[in-house]
Amino acid sequence: MSDSSVIDRGQEAEFGDFVQLLKPRVMSLVVFTAMVGLLVAPVPVHPFVAATSILFIALGGGASGALNMWYDADIDRVMRRTANRPIPAGRVSEGEALGLGLALSGFSCVMLGLAANWVAAAFLAFTIFFYVVVYTVWLKRTTPQNIVIGGAAGAFPPMIGWAVATGGVSVESVMMFALIFMWTPPHFWALALFMKDDYSKAGVPMLTVTHGRKVTRAHILAYTLLLAPVAIGTGFTAIGGPVYLVAAVLLSAGFIRGAWRIFRRDETMAEADRYLAERRFFRFSLAYLFLLFSALLGQAALRSLAIGGW
């Protein structure tokens, strides 16, 4: 083997391809929720320590994204939506993704421990382990409840942010976890309803494929109904307040209305208007989480001015 055969691969990986491995769009959600978790905590954190902590939490999330892309490269090659990711497109090798993911995992946890505390670092390590081993390797390909379990990994960041400030766990941080945990299934199942990705060809047991679309619609409604008490209940904890409570009630009412509309439709109705209600529900779900966490942030700002808290 001449060395030119090693160097001259069809497509050279650019710096951006390695950034793509870290799933920057997922990272933005991690940054936002971790930041809220950190800022609503009752213990003040030095701004520089807070910024670096959030950066390393995001990097840990990115590392788990790279490890996910390494393990799921075979699925990504089959599905249209993911075929242009760096590994299936041949720009980055699987070994490079594995190396980057492992290195960044270790790096982010150690640096978070040094910057903040070791409880937060252990939390981050567990999150990476949960997303990569429990979700990606173990459950994603074996159970149609994969989205529910995967949602737990996405729900940890506000708890890590809270742990950065307080060094522990409390009712408030568990409620923020529950909020994202209950929100994830309706959010992703709505996407699965209108994206119609070829999960069955890729061997991923999505609920839409294994139990049908009617059952998926019922599941969306059930999780949305369970989400509402969590969202409203958070308003009665120490991080809640009247402003958040009003936001939670209004947003939850809108979310349940959308889920009810999805539940009442069948496939012919959905085909007729090209999944308009499902698309709307998906977009609203993003706004729902963003506004709810923004309301928590707003409530914390009011509390610092000694107004509007319980």
Binding site: E12, A13, E14, F15, F18, H46, F48, V49, T52, L55, L114, A115
Partner: peptide
Amino acid sequence: SRRIGRNLGLGLVLGAFVALVFGLTIV
């Protein structure tokens, strides 16, 4: 020349990391 983008990117990341550890030390 083909890898200049990657090398510059990595250089910037490492530079930023050094600045970050320095800042953290000061704090």
